[in-house]
Each structure stands twice: as C-alpha cells, then as structure tokens.
Design a protein around this nucleic acid. Structure first.
Lengths: 367, 367
DNA sequence: GTTTAATTGAAAACCGTTGTCAGTTCACTC
DNA sequence: GAGTGAACTGACAACGGTTTTCAATTAAAC
C-alpha cells in the first residue's frame, strides 16, 4: 500500500540501497553488471525494487554519467508533420528507424517549426548525434546542430563542414537517364514540373537563372540531369518550360500540370522532379481527358510505392536504404575506415506512363 | 585554433565561468534567465561562449536537474519501421508530432523490436511521458512503461490502470453504420477480411471464438460492430466467413480476398477492417476481372488518403486528430478538469466501391 | 549623508547515477 | 595454516547543470 507507481518518485538507487542495507554500488551492479554480484543477492535487489516501485536507474542521470543518451536526433525544417505525409520522407524515416532499432538507439524527432526560428529545441535535445534531412544549407537550426559537439550526418546535401558525414543519391545521373529515355522515345517538346526552389513561396514558371540559384541541391541536380540529357539530344534548354510549386502534394502537381499545358499545349512529355507531383499530373490528365501515354508522357522521380502501383515511369532512388545508411553512418562512428560520404545509385524504371512521341503525333493526325 | 566544435567537449558551464571570472550562476542565468543579469554582462558571457565553442548548457545535465526531458516517448510494438509504412500509423504520428511540436516537445521513438523482448529500451528513454500505440495489453514493454513514474496515454485500447489516459475512436459504431449501409443495399452474403487477431502468425479463416478471443481490441470492436449490424438485419453471424491476415499490407489484403472468394464464391460484399486490406482486395478484384461494385462491393475502414483517391467506401476515423489528442492529453497534465478518456467519432463515407446487391443479381442474371 | 530598496552576483546544496579502487570477509583448496 | 579467489562494501569523485539563499553593491529617496 505504499502507493501506485504514478504518484511520485520516492525511490532512488540510494534509497533502495539504504532500505536493503547494501551499498549503492551493489544496486547499480544489479542492474548494469549482473556478473559482479551473486544471483541471489541480485534477485533480492530486484525484488526489493519491485516492492518499492523503483523503476530502475533514472535514464537521465545515467545518461549524464555515461555520456550517452541512447538516441539519435532527427532534424527536419519542414513542419514536423510533413515528415509523415510525404512518402519519400516516410521511406527515409523508415530506413533510419530501422538502423536505430538495430543499434538499440531511439529516434528523437526534434521539434522545430519552420516559422519561429527557435533554435532552443536543438540545444535541448538529449541525443548522441544528429541526422539532418531536407534542410536548406543556411538554416539556423542546421547551424545550431553543427554547434553541438556530436556527430552529424546530412542527407542529400553537399556539405563542407569537417566531421559531418553525408549520404545522398545519384540524382543527376538518374534524371539524365530519364531524359535520355525521353529523347530516345522521340520527345523534343518537354515540360518540367519541379518542387520548391527557394525558401519564399513561389508558384509558377522558373527560368534558368532561378533554377541555378536554388538553395535546394536536390532540385538543382535533378533539373541539371535532365538538362544534360536534353542538351545531348540537341534540345535547347532555354526553350524548356519549368513550372515550380511551393507545396509538395498531388494537388500541387495537378495544378502545375494544368498551368504548364495551358501555356505550352504542344508539350508531349511532362517530366516531374518527384513522384508526388507526377501523380498529381496524372490526376490532372485523367480529369482533363488527356490520354497517358498516348497523348502525353508523364514521368516522376523517387519510386514511391504508389507510383509503382499506377505504373509511373520514374527514377527509383533507394529511399529506405538512404535512411538506413544515414543511421549507420552515424552509429558506426569510431570505425576509422568508415566511408564519410555515401552516394547511392538510382535506377530508371520504365512504366506505362511514357510512350513514343511518334505515337503522340499519330494520335494527333488521327484526330 | 582551439579546435573545431567536433573534436571534444572542452567547454562546460563551469570552465566558461572560470574563464570569465564569474560564477556558474551567472553563466547559467545568461542562458536561462536573461532578466537576472545586465545586458552587457550577458552579452559578454555569450560572446565568450561563442569564442570557446561552448554550445550552451548540456541538455542531459539540465534535464537531470530540472526533471524534465522535453520529450515524449512513443511505444509501438510493431517493428519501429512499421510506423512509417502503415498509413494509419503515419497519420497518427503526424497528429502526435503536431501536438508535440506545438508544445515544444520532442518525440522519441522508443526502439523495441517485437521479437527480442528487451525492455531495457523503455527504461533508457529519457522522456516526460509515454504514448502507447498499437500494442497488445499483455505486452512486456507496455508493462515496463507503466512502471515508469511518468504519465501515459494509450491509444485504441481499453485500459484499467489508474493514472493512464486513453484516446480512441468509435470503432464499433462506425462499423455498425457501415454494416447497416451494406444491409440497406441488400447484401446478405458478406465476407470479412480482418487484421491480425493474435500475437502468433495466423493466416486464414477465423471462427467466432477466435474473433472473441483476440487481444486486439480494435479488431474486436470493428468485427463486433459489423456483427451487430448484420444481426439486426437478420443475418446469422455464424455463417459469415472471416479471413484473417497477420501482415497488414495490400498484398495481404489481395491474398485474403482471393482466399475468401475461392471458398465463398457467392459473397456479394467484402467488408475489410482496414483500408489497406481493402485496397489489396480491390487490387485482386481488378486482376481477377471482378467488377466493383457491380459484381462485388468492397469496403474498408480508416479513411486513408489513398482510399479516398480510389473512391473506397469506408469508415473514416480522424487518425491525425487522434494522435493530436493523445499528445494533448499527455502534455496538458496538471489540467485538473481535463478529460481522462476521449473517444472520437467515426463517419461513414460512401464511395464508389459499394453498390446494391440487387445490382449484383441483375449482373448475374444478365450473364 | 543616511536609510531604504532594487540589482547583481556568489556559494553551496542538489539532481541520481556510474566508476574506480582499496579493502574486508569468507569459503575453499592444497 | 597459508594462499587464493570470489563476493561485496564504502568512500569519493565525477557528470554538468539549476536554484535557492544570501551578501554585496548600487541607485533612489528623504
């Protein structure tokens, strides 16, 4: 009748030791180094702990003493909830969680709202290391992370800071392969739908200057890869319309597709820098009665599950693996001959949403 | 040239104070209570901190002293990565993350693999409270959570433990409404696809005894709701085939649908206890050339985004809101007149995958 | 020019562990 | 009966802060 475990915390390691008439060391050992004391004594300690409602050594105090928090921090600048809405982010998180799970480490989602630049949360986080995902390079939170004396891995971003590892994928090469696929199919009039290029809201056409200026390396690489491929095929990039969307959702993809097709009705292929946008584009095409791929080719990037379900032509990146590698990179610290930078391959996946441009023309002539 | 911030941790609050010739209190105040010291002095302290690479007070030490960790722990018994694969779980997490974000709390995913029953992780977690999601009642991790002297909120589970709050949804009522919808459409031959009912792998028919015995309250309620509705309409539940799947994925749904339709070809409606299973069932129907809803009605439960996209008839539960409420329940502790139990409403969403049974007969007779 | 009040800073206690290390007890072995 | 090793103790120093109490300094008031 000493009370439920949820009233207060009366018991500490010391009080338990006193109760039992043993030293604190012994109690501590009962939990942490069972080989240091006899089994019966250990059982006695544990039994007394149960009886007194002692939940075991306080994790925070233990962390302080051992200098290990047992958790990895994850920093995203997008609203935290975004992490769960975007299929690429969830894939990444899944992999990261997997790696953490295997290492017995927790995964702490650091609460940072993109608006109020309250860096405090980063300082408050009791973690052994950070993974930084989808953050622009000049982000104050990111800088706060770098100030913390713990190892850090950044994802999808060239990083020059010493002691910071990196994992990314072959964005440019993947998009280049996709571009080659498109030109091989005979497409010359190609439109591009891309994600946010800057921190400020901007929805609409993005000219080459803006494309170059972007603070999002992933977008730069993907657009750049496409540009390489098209240029190889003799297409003048300056004439390629690029429509940008700030939000990353199917709805945004649909509206971007509408916008682009309205201003450039002669486009035979829509290359999107993400599957989510592409799925939106497909949605728009379906609603507008535009046959895919007969009249319009649509491609994505990422290889999310839903894209696979709808047969989208896309570039698959190993999102989950990327998360896993990020975790491993972080947790295998100390491994002297560990790579500091990992770039994972991407793979062109030809689905049923891309077809020959000639077919499109046939379609037109048949009209 | 004292070194980058990533070499070691030379600077502590004490060393900084010594360097400056002030007391530790002052340095601490500079960070935590700016009103307790003059602005110039504070600036001097902060400047010295920058110079010496002092990243601010150590979060763990601070937590120890203040008895607040600044984070909420999330316990799932499914492999951690499952949390990111299942759309319902991600929705819940999104809401929970939102609540945490607003309260400036971190969200710690506690690493528990379902297999090795290593409760240690629960004890290691430096958190101010726990949210327990999708865990069977007799789970050792769950019990470990209850031992911790911190507030706890469980989700979707009747809980008798004092001091533990609960959030859930009207599973039974929702499914009952769906059942009424089905019987109103004239369906009498109904098959059920349900999720895991026990901790052991089991794929195949689940008789009423097994349905009752399940350690997953959600499944019990949903199946029970359907049973109520069908019984109301005079359908003998004993004759209703229920097929269970251990895995929760579209593939599992597809195979379950195949199994059920093979053994009960006269079924006119397939009621699934989750959208994910229903999406799988739809997939199977499409592959097998079974017209939906003309020849077969398919329904789900949850109201996930993809279900909406495909027009699935389902019961929508406010998953995100549920997560948010869980967070609020936990974080608003101390609010004396706060509810201890929250049950959120569900809503029947009639889509394009359910149709009258008469239509089905017409379809048959037209053959 | 005191007295009084407001500011500011220092000292010390405390948070709950872990780890180390010398030392004691005790049962066994040879 | 000395030697050996296992089991356990006790003291103490971290770990890096926060917070309360109180003294000292300064500014304001009379």
């Amino acid at each position: 009748m000493t009370g439920s475990p949820h009233v207060r915390r009366p018991a500490t390691l010391a009080s338990l030791a006193a109760e039992l008439g043993v030293s604190r060391t012994t109690v501590s050992n009962a939990y942490n180094r069972p080989d240091q004391l006899s089994a019966p004594l250990r059982e006695k300690v544990l039994e007394a702990a149960r009886r007194l409602g002692y939940p075991g050594p306080d994790p925070v105090a233990r962390s302080l003493r051992t200098r290990r928090a047992g958790a990895v921090g994850l920093l995203l600048t997008e609203a935290l909830s975004y992490a769960f809405r975007d299929p690429v982010a969830t894939g990444f998180l899944e992999g990261l969680a997997l790696a953490c799970e295997q290492a017995g480490q927790g995964l702490l989602l650091v609460p940072v709202s993109p608006e109020h630049a309250d860096v405090a949360a980063v300082h408050q986080a009791g973690v052994d290391g950070f993974v930084v995902y989808s953050v622009s390079e000049d982000d104050p939170h990111f800088r706060a992370v770098l100030e913390r004396p713990v190892p850090t891995v950044v994802c999808d971003q060239p990083v020059g800071v010493e002691g910071v590892d990196r994992v990314g994928v072959a964005d440019r090469e993947g998009m280049r392969a996709l571009g080659a696929h498109l030109t091989a199919l005979g497409h010359r009039k190609i439109g591009v739908l891309c994600m946010r290029l800057g921190p400020q809201r901007h929805d609409g056409p993005a000219d080459p200057a803006r494309q170059e200026r972007t603070s999002y390396p992933v977008q730069r690489e993907r657009i750049g890869g496409l540009r390489d491929a098209l240029t190889d095929a003799g297409v003048d990039w300056a004439g390629v319309p690029v429509v940008e969307r700030f939000e990353h959702s199917p709805e945004a993809g649909a509206s971007a597709a509408r916008e682009l097709l309205a201003s450039h009705p002669d486009v035979t292929a829509l290359a999107c820098t993400s599957d989510v946008l592409a799925i939106g584009a497909l949605q728009h095409a379906a609603e507008a009665g535009i046959a895919v791929p007969e009249r319009l080719t649509v491609t994505g990037f990422d290889g999310v599950p839903e894209a696979e379900r709808v047969g989208l032509t896309t570039v698959r990146q190993p999102v989950r693996r990327k998360g896993q590698v990020a975790g491993e990179l972080l947790l295998q610290r100390g491994d002297r001959n560990k790579p500091k930078q990992v770039v994972l391959p991407t793979e062109l996946v030809v689905g049923s949403t891309s077809g020959p441009a000639t077919q499109t023309e046939k379609f037109f002539s048949g009209w």
